[in-house]
């Protein structure tokens, strides 16, 4: 759905995005995680053609964002941290204006999205009178207008109260599940991301530290064994573990920690610990950041 290939961006001396390559699969809920200043918003800005990369390629559904902007963004909706509208106009008028910048959207479609986001009763009020939550819903409505297949959300949970965050999380899950939308969002609300993401990428100082399916990040085991290097080498050569870092190994798909223990004991190793590492997104994120990408 989305491909970024060796994308670089500098703002003066600051290297905001460094050789970023990323693939967002169709149908996924993809969380782009990182501290403030990690380069998430710059990456999303480039994806929407709002920031020009110094090098690299960005494609949505195979279309280059800069060479074929109308084609690439035709069915893309975006929401930013603080949705801004023309305050002096009604929500309805705002939607009509934003729709006019896409291909023609029939009135019926506007009615549909207004109903979907639950703004039917207030859509003809001036946006200036809307609460932050209502603005977020209006932002979602405008993002869905062009019958979107992809939603790009830049820090959508910022400024929302816990109830609003929960609503947003449910909505993201619903849009992905019921409408099949691919959703790419940046966030530092890890506990919320944990519950909806199918894929995650972690960035730090413009560099990508990890990218992949969230379940791929599971399967890590803490391993303490005598002749550790020899044991790990053997496990890797047998294809039982895929990665090994500082006393931790990642099991190949379908294997359980008990399989590892059994094999090591049979091979004559003295096993002290084989303990599954239970990862929350938060612990995974912190570990990834600490390891500098070697999770």
């Amino acid at each position: 759905m989305i491909e970024l290939e060796h994308v670089n961006k500098r703002f003066g001396k600051q290297h905001a995005v460094v050789d970023l390559s990323l693939v967002v699969p169709e149908g996924s809920v993809f969380g782009l995680l990182g501290h403030n200043g990690a380069g998430k918003s710059t990456a999303l800005g480039m994806l929407l053609g709002q920031v020009f990369p110094d090098s690299g390629a960005l494609r949505i559904e195979g279309r280059d964002v800069f060479a074929d902007r109308p084609g690439a963004l035709r069915r893309v909706g975006a929401i930013f941290e603080s949705p801004v509208f023309y305050n002096y106009l009604s929500g309805w008028r705002n939607l009509c204006i934003f729709a006019s910048y896409s291909h023609p959207v029939p009135r019926r479609r506007i009615d549909e999205v207004v109903e979907l986001v639950g703004l039917t009763g207030r859509i003809h009020d001036r946006v200036g009178a809307y609460s932050h939550g209502m603005r977020q819903r209006l932002a979602l409505a405008q993002a869905l207008l062009p019958d979107s297949k992809l939603l790009i959300l830049d820090e959508p949970a910022d400024g929302l109260d816990p109830e609003g965050i929960a609503e947003l999380r449910d909505l993201i899950a619903r849009l992905n599940r019921e409408m099949g939308l691919t959703i790419l969002f940046s966030s530092h609300h890890l506990s919320e991301a944990d519950q909806v993401c199918t894929h995650v990428a972690v960035m730090r100082q413009g560099r990508l530290l990890h990218s992949g399916a969230w379940h791929d990040a599971h399967g890590w085991v803490e391993l303490q064994v005598d002749r550790a290097d020899e044991a790990v080498a053997q496990l890797q050569s047998l294809g039982m573990v895929t990665e090994a870092v500082d006393g931790r190994v990642r099991l190949s798909e379908g294997l359980e920690p008990a399989d590892l223990t059994e094999h090591l004991v049979r091979s004559g190793f003295r096993v002290s610990t084989v303990k599954p590492i239970k990862l929350t997104l938060e612990s995974f994120y912190l570990k990834t950041i600490d390891d500098g990408g070697a999770a």
Binding site: L48, G49, Q50, R69, P70, G71, A72, L73, R74, V76, G77, A78, F80, S82, P83, V84, F85, Y86, F98, Y101, S102, H103, A139, Q142, A143, P146, I152
Partner: peptide, 18 residues
Amino acid sequence: EEGTMRMVLARPISRLRL
């Protein structure tokens, strides 16, 4: 400055046309 331009340019309209 207000941010509406970012919203507008998230749509498939070219900058030149806008």
